[in-house]
Design a binder for these strands. Structure first.
Length: 224
DNA sequence: GACCAGGCACATC
DNA sequence: GATGTGCATGGT
């Protein structure tokens, strides 16, 4: 089966299994951006705690967070881990937003997708996955998000080599799928939920909706 | 107590 | 250009 068709079949299997996941969890675009930075290499559970602390202190908005000293911000987001690094990264984004768009996400998202992606990548602490998460889930732009689970699942299913890089994997998805925002959002969400439930470093492939009925794939996954 | 989690920047070779 | 390392909390 060709890779494009397999990617579409994988989507169908996972969508049937999990249903509509309504991603990203977050009430506002700003909260989504903050979550995207806080969840870097971190379990979402810990990010939720940190987000709750930011909301309780009424600083889940660009201006309040920008005016808060970095050390205080770091202590508030402590439960999310890497708190000193992440406080600096949040501050770098807030500085970018303030200096270029006067703290307005609306103005920031008025920029065309390619230019905005480049600008975000130039912000210290925003790499490809974080930039694409911001574009897709906060801005509603067609940017497919590739994460560690995406690489792991595709690699175990023989669709990519284990050394495939971010741009290659992103192009593979974007060339295979209809260019529809809801599909991009749902597909990445499905991959993350699959990863969390079935495709950790020690996979639980027997129950995975992608593993069922394919002993070759299951064997390969278990061996990896 | 070891292992892992929805990355990224930086150093080193 | 590839590979290794620091960053840190909290759940399993």
């Amino acid at each position: 089966m060709n890779p494009k068709l397999r990617l579409c079949r994988i989507y169908s299997s996972l969508d049937a299994h999990f249903g509509d996941l309504h991603w990203w969890p977050g009430e506002t675009p700003f909260e989504i951006i903050v979550g995207a930075i806080l969840t870097q290499n971190t379990a979402w559970r810990n990010v939720e705690t940190a987000i709750g602390r930011l909301k309780n202190r009424r600083i889940m908005n660009p201006r309040s967070m920008r005016l808060l000293p970095e050390q205080e911000l770091a202590s508030i987001i402590r439960p999310a881990g890497f708190f000193n690094v992440k406080a600096a990264r949040l501050k770098a984004f807030l500085r970018f937003l303030h200096e270029n768009y006067g703290d307005s996400l609306e103005r920031m998202f008025a920029v065309d997708t390619a230019s905005l992606r480049s600008a975000l990548l130039a912000v210290h602490g925003i790499g490809p996955e974080t930039a694409d998460s911001i574009l897709l889930y906060a801005g509603g732009r067609p940017a497919f998000v590739v994460d560690a689970y995406t690489k792991r699942i595709l690699s175990r299913h023989g669709l990519i080599s284990s050394t495939a890089d971010y741009p290659y994997i992103q192009r593979l998805f974007m060339a295979s799928l209809p260019k529809e925002i809801p599909i991009y959002k749902q597909y990445h969400a499905l991959i993350v939920e699959t990863g969390k439930a079935f495709c950790r470093k020690t996979p639980i492939c027997s129950a995975c909706p992608l593993g069922k009925g394919d002993p070759v794939r299951v064997a390969r996954a278990l061996a990896s």
